[in-house]
């Protein structure tokens, strides 16, 4: 491991010792952060996978119904039927902090116009019942879809953050800290060596003075 390019002085030694203690503390904190993020991430991602499978299955069913509906009705009528939705959907997004990751928390805000109760934005005279089925199925999936959006985004953001944290932890553990330790050892040895040489020199000088006297 390469040692840092510094002069072996007492002042550098003190500085490096300070840096080492900060690096060690930072490493411990980041490691804790990484562990906790990983724990949350794994449970979330499992949930994410299950939810996605479920949603894809349900959506597939709804699409099948839609296909039947479009077979039973003319395309113009179908488009006309859904052209003016009765419901308007918006979403309220708040942020939740998971170990420094801003995960979204989403809430649907559904507004039904006119008479409540019926979600279908069309009269029943010209449309087929398959369309009703398809839309009611899709209506039921919306909550799951929202949950999927929320959890999938959270997983994505967390995966990024975990990767970043891991890089930092590794950089500290395998580069910064060993480098600092190596340099500190080098400086301590150098200083000791200097001290020893001073003592030897003094002893030599003393011998010379005594021999003269």
């Amino acid at each position: 491991m390469a040692r840092l390019d510094v002069k072996p002085t007492r002042m550098e030694l003190t500085k490096l010792r300070g840096r080492l203690s900060i690096a060690t503390r930072g490493h411990k904190l980041l490691k804790d952060k990484q562990d906790e993020l990983m724990r949350v991430f794994i449970s979330k991602v499992r949930e994410n996978q299950a939810l996605r499978k479920q949603v894809e299955k349900d959506l597939h069913k709804s699409f099948q119904e839609f296909l039947l509906a479009s077979a039973a009705m003319s395309p113009e009528l179908l488009e006309q039927a859904v052209a003016y939705p009765k419901e308007s959907i918006s979403v309220d997004i708040k942020r939740e902090n998971i170990m420094g990751v801003n995960a979204p928390v989403m809430d649907f805000i559904r507004k039904l116009e006119g008479d409540a109760g019926s979600i279908y934005p069309y009269g029943f005279v010209q449309t087929s019942s398959e369309l009703d089925d398809a839309i009611s199925k899709l209506y039921g999936i919306m909550d799951e879809l929202l949950e999927l959006a929320e959890i999938e985004k959270a997983c994505q953001l967390m995966a990024d953050e975990i990767e970043k944290t891991r890089r930092r932890v590794n950089a500290l553990e395998f580069r910064t800290i060993p480098e600092l330790e190596e340099t500190i050892r080098f400086i301590v040895m150098k200083l000791d060596e200097n001290e020893r040489s001073t003592i030897t020199r003094l002893m030599k000088v003393k011998d010379m003075i005594e021999a003269d006297a």
């Binding site: 699409f63 839609f66 479009s70 488009e79 859904v82 959907i89 918006s90 979403v91 899709l138």
Partner: peptide, 22 residues
């Protein structure tokens, strides 16, 4: 307050339109 949208081929997204999603 945020809105919700769906992008895709016409046949796939028609149903979402009926629910008030852009």
């Amino acid at each position: 307050m945020y809105k919700v949208a769906v992008v895709g081929d016409k046949n796939s997204i028609l149903g979402f339109k009926a629910l008030g999603i852009d």
